[in-house]
């Protein structure tokens, strides 16, 4: 089955991974900007990273017939450096017209601090001013519930933002209802230890019906599995769930959400 991974960090993966994903049916992916494992020292470090996301990765993906899209921001972890964050936010518009850019992301909270919230709000302002869709990172483990609620508070405070153009990622059993009930899209991240297994993700699909729900691998430089979405497809088939529902979660929903970005230009496999 053709599928789309809406959240995967290919800058951290090898070309072999592109080949494997292509063989497993991945036809498109979106890569949000994130933390590199170390704090970057200057705005030029981010400018180079955004060139990698908008030039290098799409070319690398295209060699395997995969269409690569991206989201730009300074991540919540580096948002503790408020002055650098503001320089990066001011520089982002240089890249918003690049053909594979879908919007602003993954912005959010990490430890739910004041600086993170300040920079999150400034990203929301940027997205509103430039009419961009938004991809949101919610914190992990004990910080997830509190951070998700704070993020939803800030999103709902801003009347300029349309919930239908916001994907709130890394939802789990205790955050999924609030995200979907308030009209946002929800992303389930299949990631060892800190997030969600394919089995639990399928439980959530069964309980919600899969409306406005996406699944991703968040494959990155940490312990993660870039082929996690095919694992989810396999688990859904094992439970005899309808192919139409599988396709909805791994293909139709990402397409529908991405289509809200004016630059999204996708060619389905003929």
């Amino acid at each position: 089955m053709d599928y789309i991974d809406p959240h995967i960090h290919m800058v951290s993966r090898t070309t072999d991974d592109y080949a494997t994903l292509a063989r497993m049916g991945c036809v498109a992916m979106s890569e949000p900007a994130f933390w590199a494992g170390y704090d970057r020292g200057s705005v030029d470090g981010f400018r180079d990273y955004f060139r990698q996301l908008t030039e290098t990765e799409p070319a690398r993906a295209a060699q395997y017939g995969i269409q690569h899209f991206t989201w730009l921001c300074i991540n919540a972890k580096e948002a503790e450096n408020v002055s650098l964050s503001r320089e990066v936010i001011a520089m982002i518009p240089e890249f918003l017209d690049k053909p594979n850019v879908l919007g602003i992301g993954e912005i959010g909270l990490n430890k739910n601090t004041k600086n993170e919230a300040t920079i999150f709000l400034e990203h929301l302002d940027l997205a509103a001013k430039y009419g961009q869709s938004i991809l949101i990172h919610t914190p992990h483990l004990e910080d997830k519930y509190q951070g998700t609620r704070m993020i939803l508070d800030m999103l709902c405070d801003d009347q300029r933002l349309d919930p239908d153009r916001v994907l709130v990622d890394h939802v789990e059993e205790h955050t999924i209802s609030e995200v979907l009930d308030r009209g946002f899209w929800g992303g389930m991240t299949l990631y060892p230890v800190t997030k969600c297994t394919p089995e639990r993700a399928v439980d959530m699909i069964e309980q919600t019906g899969g409306e406005r729900l996406l699944a991703n691998s968040a494959g990155d430089w940490g312990p993660s599995k870039p082929t996690a979405v095919p694992d989810l497809i396999f688990e859904m088939r094992r439970r005899s769930l309808p192919e139409s529902l599988i396709r909805k979660v791994v293909y139709d929903n990402p397409l529908e959400f991405f289509s809200k970005s004016k630059q999204f230009n996708f060619t389905p496999r003929g």
């Binding site: 739910n112 704070m150 508070d153």
Partner: peptide, 20 residues
């Protein structure tokens, strides 16, 4: 599963904006 998640979560305080 949801109850376990809540058990392992920090509390949400609706007044967080005032605190910041």
């Amino acid at each position: 599963a949801e109850q376990l998640q809540q058990l392992f979560s920090r509390e949400y305080d609706a007044d967080w904006r005032e605190q910041f």
